[in-house]
Computed example of a mutant assay.
Amino acid sequence: MPICQSCGKNWTWKQTFKTIFRLKCPHCGEKQYESASSRIRSGIFVIIPLIVLLPLNAWLDFSIGMALILAIVFVIIMFGFYPLILKLANEEEPYW
């Protein structure tokens, strides 16, 4: 779970999910940024389902509706796990 870099308090899964798009600490109110390593991990976390879903779709010849349902399921799973892989920083970090 993320730890605020300003006050050092752990965020719960629910607090993280509520602030997922603005990343403001629920304890001290300071703006936080996603760390570079966390952005890389979350990018990989998004690419892996695509790598799995696209060939699976071509191989099993899913209908558009079935592919859409699988994509929605993958998005829900990714949003559910995102608070677990999020790491915070006080400043916006470059990728390298």
Rank of each mutant, 00 (worst) to 15 (best):
C4H: 02
C4K: 02
C4P: 13
C4F: 01
Q5C: 02
S6N: 08
S6C: 03
S6R: 03
C7E: 00
C7V: 01
G8K: 00
G8S: 03
K9V: 00
K9Y: 00
K9C: 00
N10S: 06
W11A: 01
W11V: 02
T12D: 05
W13Q: 12
W13M: 13
W13G: 02
K14P: 01
Q15G: 02
F17T: 04
F17V: 03
F17P: 01
F17N: 06
K18W: 10
F21D: 07
R22I: 06
L23T: 07
L23V: 01
L23I: 07
K24Q: 05
C25F: 11
P26Y: 04
P26D: 07
C28I: 05
C28T: 10
C28D: 12
E30Y: 10
E30W: 04
Q32Y: 11
E34F: 06
E34P: 04
S37F: 08
S37Q: 07
S37K: 06
S37E: 08
S38C: 10
I40S: 03
R41G: 03
S42P: 03
G43E: 13
I44R: 10
I44Y: 03
I44M: 03
F45L: 11
F45K: 02
I47G: 09
I47V: 15
I48Y: 12
P49S: 10
P49R: 00
I51N: 09
I51R: 08
I51F: 12
L53D: 14
L54N: 09
L54T: 15
L54V: 15
L54Q: 10
P55F: 10
P55S: 14
L56T: 14
L56C: 11
L56S: 15
N57I: 04
N57A: 14
W59I: 15
W59A: 14
D61Q: 09
F62V: 10
S63T: 15
S63W: 12
I64W: 08
G65S: 13
M66W: 12
L68P: 01
I69G: 03
I69F: 14
A71Y: 03
A71Q: 06
A71E: 01
I72G: 08
I72M: 06
I72L: 10
V73Q: 00
V75T: 05
V75L: 06
F79N: 09
F79T: 01
G80W: 02
G80Q: 05
G80H: 12
F81N: 04
Y82L: 06
L84Y: 14
I85F: 14
L86E: 11
L86F: 15
L86A: 14
L86M: 15
K87E: 15
K87H: 11
K87S: 10
A89I: 04
A89Y: 09
N90C: 08
E93S: 12
P94W: 09
Y95H: 07
Y95A: 06
W96S: 05
